[in-house]
Design a protein around this nucleic acid. Structure first.
Lengths: 224, 224
DNA sequence: CTTCCACAACTAAAATTTTCATCGTACCCT
DNA sequence: AGGGTACGATGAAAATTTTAGTTGTGGAAG
């Protein structure tokens, strides 16, 4: 699980990083709006923790822009103020939850877990171009035709679709497929990519799975 | 993940049950010391949440007795008082953490997660009779001889050993082996039991894995 | 422009997991 | 005690996962 923490204050940032890493999340830090926007779009985060008062573009604007770009990653906003207008406005801008400083680490952690769990219920049908995946029935179709996947193939595809558009490094995919058990020296991700492609992309003109040499893979309807 | 909640106050009890079940724990309730002792010994709980002030045998005594019987399940104590003597005493009696009322549900949840994680680090070597399992190296020996297990076989054995002595229902084992994905109508647990037995018990006089018809299985050095 | 290197794609075989059908046995009922 | 039934054990085939090795390809260096 990858989390992006956007936080100005170095002390809080490293405190959060350390705490979250102890919870076995993989954490990346960033201290300004521009980088946040860039990173959130290029990486496959499962969660964004976003301080409102940061350098450059403000948190609320970051939040809004990400949603405009159809980024679906849950966002938890951290804020010093706690006025009503703040809260309502934020949720409108696309934040999923907010927390006013000061807050306890455990409170943040609980909120993160709530959001991660909600993800599953939120999107009833994942779509990329004419490829559709229904997480409830675990069924997949492309151009209406049903496609049968094995468990691991399905896991891989669901993960790709939940992070559609982003470039996902092989390490993340591996983590997803083999929950944290280390299996160094293994080309299984590439093997599964091959299988997935042969089922998802092979018979279609428009290829959805893309390889980004030295970076990872992505699932994308654009040329990119 | 199975949690036993020992709580007198019906309101709190059902609140905890509901909250924990939303977190995907499987919860059992009990409102007095005697039942708590009995249930904790007969079932394979992963965690016990224990109120100090309960009917019958008091919480501290329950805690102490369970530890005397070598039950290793983590115990989180709930207490109305918050005097220092309480805290120190409890930890001596074998509790792993305590929480003073009133507490927020999220705080309890966080403590539970901490304890569950600690479990892994706490016991460096699991033993039942001459059967030994090292969770770090994932290696298993019986009477000193090394035994090679596949991933699923290992998972099953580790789970049995972490709950040694208790009768574990098939449903729990299934949940453990196939993280929550439902696979109704499947005898895989019995298939794996068979395999495990053929590696662990077959060549030995003393059988450690026991079947309890209509109840489940247990791993035990006693005749039982 | 060629060569080389690193990475990814592919293939095939081995190992494991999962399913399925059948067998054995404890327990209940009469 | 005999018979029925339900549950667990067993064996083996089918499917999937994993490993290992080979082939292909893009980009850097010469």
């Amino acid at each position: 699980m990858k989390i992006l923490v956007v936080e100005d204050d170095e002390g809080i940032a490293s405190f959060l990083k350390q705490g979250l890493e102890e919870e076995l999340f993989s954490v990346e830090l960033c201290d300004n709006g521009e980088d946040a926007l860039y990173l959130a779009q290029i990486n496959a985060y499962d969660m964004i923790v976003l301080d409102l008062m940061i350098k450059g573009i403000q948190g609320d604007a970051v939040c809004q822009k990400l949603r405009e770009k159809k980024l679906h990653t849950p966002i938890i906003v951290l804020s010093a103020k706690s006025t009503i207008s703040d809260k309502v406005g934020l949720l409108h801008l696309g934040a999923d939850d907010y927390l006013t400083k000061p807050f306890s680490f455990e409170e943040l952690l609980a909120r993160i877990h709530v959001q991660l769990r909600k993800q599953n219920d939120k999107e009833p049908l994942l779509k990329v171009a004419d490829l559709e995946l229904n997480p409830l029935t675990k069924s997949v179709t492309r151009s209406g035709e049903s496609i049968t996947l094995t468990a691991k193939e399905y896991m891989l595809l669901e993960y790709l679709m939940r992070h559609r558009g982003a470039i996902i490094e092989e390490k993340s995919l591996e983590e997803q497929l083999f929950s944290s058990e280390q299996s160094i020296n293994s080309n299984m991700v590439s093997v599964y990519m091959y299988r997935l492609r042969s089922k998802i992309d092979k018979n279609f003109e428009r290829k959805l799975i893309k390889t980004h040499r030295n970076l990872g893979y992505s699932l994308n309807e654009n040329a990119l």
